[in-house]
Design a protein around this nucleic acid. Structure first.
Length: 340
DNA sequence: GTTCCACCGGAAACGGGGGAAC
DNA sequence: GTTCCCCCGTTTCCGGTGGAAC
């Protein structure tokens, strides 16, 4: 049934990004001068998870790199490179400059300033995860670097920046990526189906079912599609049925959850599990349960930092400013009701 | 109003890990 | 192999806040 499984992976880069042509055209017009060697400040892409932000930005950078040998491009995941030094090192790596963990940060900054002497377009994905916005200021001031910033919420990001950085970046043209509509998701799924599976493996109505339960999130929709096709194939069916889709909704949920928690440290995973099982909990309840589950627990202050970081990741949420604060897991995968 | 307790978060210190220099 | 330097996660200290009990 499945002829080309790679096409069903969430990170597969399609030849065309459906329903994002307006954004692509606009971003292309912004980045066009870079091709001619001119300096462009950059752009800011924002919108919810699964709206195609990263995929589109990567698509644009690939196209830019293909069209000109003189333009260097690189993408940095600020979730994993959130420290000032770590982000600087990744940037220099992108320009083929090798660095060491022990290299002083001011040396890295000087290398960035002095050694990048050709047009360089950088995607900073999940830019709101950066701990230190000095890097954004230095990139802005660099005569050869163009930034493409990606985050979920525009206003939240700008509100965290130091004034001198905010005043510069607020001039970046913003490009909003809204959630996909059901019919848009159906087109995206059909595109993948046409490239990946045998004809008639899944009917149009079943694609609508998947689109409806995915809440506008292409990542979820593709995960449900992939799992439903696998389930149908394993059961010897010739076509995906409603029952196959119903059977894999929880699998898709777990898959997304696994992808999310795979980025966490072991202690953060315990905290996540405590909150997942306990629902809404106070700090004292979380810490008590955490302490009982690990052999060498970290101190309270560190756990507070971890919870704050997880809230920054949008994995957990909290209400209340001081005492009386409670924490809970954010249900990121908003899978709706099962198909009718 | 006062005291106690739990909690938050800034600041500084500590220590492990990794690389460079000798 | 040893020493030094640096990064970065963790710990310690401490001031501030808010709610509950008296």
């Amino acid at each position: 049934m499945i002829a080309n499984p790679d096409v069903l992976q969430a990170d597969f880069q399609p030849a065309d990004i459906l329903h994002r042509h307006d954004q692509i055209d606009y971003l292309s017009s912004i980045l066009e001068p870079v091709r001619e060697g001119e300096r462009v400040n950059g752009a800011f892409i924002y919108g919810p998870t699964g709206a195609g932000k990263t995929c589109t930005a990567q698509f644009l950078l690939d196209r830019l790199a293909d069209s000109s040998d003189d333009v260097h491009t690189y993408a940095i995941d600020c979730w994993t490179n959130y420290t000032y030094g770590g982000c600087l090192r990744r940037l220099l790596e992108g320009f083929q400059i090798t660095t060491e963990r022990s290299t002083p940060k001011d040396v890295l900054a000087a290398q960035l300033r002095d050694q990048i002497d050709e047009p360089f377009v950088v995607i900073l994905d999940e830019v709101d995860q950066l701990e230190d916005d000095r890097i954004l200021y230095q990139l802005y001031e660099h005569p050869q670097i163009t930034m493409v910033l990606i985050a979920n919420r525009r206003d939240d990001f700008y509100s965290t920046l130091e004034m001198r950085v905010e005043s510069r970046l607020s001039g970046f043209p913003g490009v909003e990526f809204r959630k996909y509509t059901e019919s848009e998701l159906v087109n995206i799924l059909r595109d993948r189906v046409d490239a990946a599976v045998q004809p008639d493996a899944i009917g149009e109505q079943r694609l609508f079912d998947i689109a409806r339960i995915s809440g506008g999130d292409a990542r979820v929709a593709i995960s449900v599609l992939r799992n439903a096709l696998k389930d149908a194939e394993a059961s010897g069916a010739e076509q995906v049925s409603t029952a196959h889709i119903e059977a894999v909704i929880d699998d898709a949920r777990r898959e997304i959850l696994r992808m999310t928690i795979s980025k966490l440290t072991s202690d953060q995973r315990v905290l996540f599990q405590v909150l997942l099982e306990g629902g809404e909990l106070s700090f004292g309840e979380i810490f008590g349960e955490y302490e009982a589950r690990v052999d060498e627990p970290l101190v309270r202050r560190t756990i507070r930092n971890h919870l704050k970081k997880m809230a920054h990741y949008d994995i957990v949420a909290y209400s209340g400013e001081k005492s009386g604060r409670t924490y809970w897991v954010v249900d990121e995968l908003e899978v709706g009701s099962a198909p009718a």
